[in-house]
Design a protein around this nucleic acid. Structure first.
Lengths: 322, 322
DNA sequence: CTTGCGTCTGAAATCGATTTCTGCAACGCT
DNA sequence: AGCGTTGCAGAAATCGATTTCAGACGCAAG
């Protein structure tokens, strides 16, 4: 691979001049011409590793997400990408698979590769962002904020959204409304359960312990949880499911049990991905995933640009559909 | 950020010794102890940029895919990840959004960041892999191989799979079977259309031009194509759809038109993602996405390890379901 | 006591770009 | 003519790790 020195030699100038040509500082038109010509001949591509070492920052942004197979996070990724690319950055995705160890691996990579910044949807409340925060790396939390981290964040109003979803069920006349919650150590799940509970108590409906099932925000977890609910002595007549994938699982469990939605009410936090049938009896609140990503990228770009304000949190709203 | 020199000074040894401690070469147990102690105190993280510059290779693998919102590619990503991580590599995803320019951006990044290797599902037949091939970067094509590229590859037997899907429709008694094809410049689509055509001619069924609609492998493209088919003078009684997302779109178009699947036959190349209803009247062939990714990672790791064989192509089979 | 071998260590070169600092030339102005 | 600008170019330091090379030391064998 040709280096800046090879180009310099062929063009008859110094390496410094070659560097200047590619960095937009002042160079004689004639010199610019010979340098570009030489670079073209040698098929020269600047070595970003060397540049990053010297500049102490690359132009790559890392997006760290817990589940790449969840369409919510991929939509969010599109939002980050669009905003970041428009500003000249490349985005790379890192999938942690809800695993704190993998997450911290990726954070270490991002730090030690001197990436320009990190947008992170944390794997759990126990996620450790100190590798980012201690080194003052530009970083923004999105969707979830680990416990007590002082960091820019873009989140959804989980309690309000959960309330909306639950109310849709209440309004449709269901009385015994269960909840399929996410992991207990994930902030978003805790808030959604709280939103569900508040609406039930405000409506004078029962909130007993047997109505909550915890699962893992995945499809299989959702169906297992629904199966458990169906075996309950006092069976719920409706279920609020706290994320999109578990709703898919829950609906599959119902299908397998031969029960069809208007018979039991379902409300999903997050729209059902790729659904093809009109969701009769399934209520949903939809999340602004892409906007979340775009907003996070904007905050990050500001930080990269030197913004020194106190950390801010932007909260977006969920919107009911159906 | 602490460097190897800071650690060396604190530990009272030379930087070379510090480096050796972190690279497993022979060092006195006592020296190893003081170095680790010093590194811990300073919260030392090796600068991967410097290491990569010197070593001329990092331990990151790039996975370049055309559509991060397609569950097929995210499943494939999981396959790559699992295999690559097991071998000690980190995987970063790059989404090209079917855009050749973005794709070549990412390839340039991968090359000039000296990443260990690249697994690529090309954006189109026109994709230019020369940045990888010219520089002899370890690379494997997956799912799609750009026209005439000499590179290791892992693909699906598209023609055979399409044939299977089409035959499911024929066997169920449909006679006028249309096809919703992908982009004309994507190899997989061409092969799937060919597979469809072959089964029709072998079965003595009509294959007229009006039966093929091209779209973009996305949901909206699929519904638009289905709408066009529905307006045809001689309406098809079944449709073979060449990818999972377009099938979702096609089914939505049918739902909106008030037509329900057994009435018109549907066969999908690739399982419907996140489906919740028993697919009455919808046939599918399912793709081994994860295995594709894992296989590709294995080939790539072999290349990184110095394998110098001629490029190989591994072809996996689609399996009919329903 | 010397020779020889193996193990470990440090000095210094190296990877390839960026950037500071210095120098040179041309120009305008009094 | 003398002097201060201005604009451009090159030499060399720098970023932080790895790795080669040569030297120091210990120990065993002759």
């Amino acid at each position: 691979m040709a280096t800046i020195y090879d180009v310099a030699r062929l063009a008859g100038v110094s390496p410094a001049t070659v560097s200047r040509v590619f960095n937009g500082t002042t160079v004689t038109p004639e010199n610019e011409r010979v340098v570009r010509e030489a670079a073209g001949q040698l098929d020269f591509v600047p070595n970003r590793t060397a540049r990053t070492l010297r500049r102490r920052s690359s132009d790559i942004i890392a997006l760290v997400i817990p589940d790449i197979e969840n369409p919510y996070f991929t939509a969010l990724a599109r939002g980050v990408e669009d905003a970041a690319r428009a500003a000249g950055y490349s985005v790379v995705l890192c999938n942690t698979d809800d695993d704190i160890a993998r997450e911290s691996d990726y954070l270490e990579v991002a730090v030690s590769e001197h990436m320009a910044g990190v947008v992170i949807a944390a794997a759990s409340d126990q996620s450790d962002l100190s590798p980012l925060l201690d080194r003052e790396k530009a970083a923004v939390a999105v969707d979830r904020v680990p416990h007590g981290a002082s960091i820019d964040a873009v989140t959804v109003d989980n309690a309000a959204g959960a309330g909306l979803a639950t109310r849709l069920l209440v309004d449709r006349g269901y009385r015994r409304i269960a909840c399929i919650a996410g992991p207990e150590d994930v902030e978003t799940s805790v808030a959604r359960v709280a939103g569900w509970r508040d609406v039930l108590t405000a409506s004078g409906l029962p909130v007993d312990h047997a109505l909550v099932e915890h699962a893992d925000y995945r499809v299989e977890g959702g169906s297992a949880a629904m199966e458990r609910l169906l075996t309950r002595a006092e069976r719920p007549d409706a279920v609020f499911v706290t994320n999109n994938l578990m709703s898919v699982g829950a609906l599959r469990a119902l299908r397998d049990a031969g029960i069809h939605p208007p018979e039991i009410g379902i409300a999903s936090f997050g729209a059902l991905p790729f659904s093809t049938s009109a969701p009769t009896g399934v209520s949903m609140v939809s999340l602004p995933a892409r906007e979340l990503g775009a907003e996070a990228a904007r905050l990050l770009l500001a930080r990269i640009g030197g913004d020194r304000q106190e950390p801010r949190t932007i909260v977006l709203e969920a919107t009911p559909i159906g």
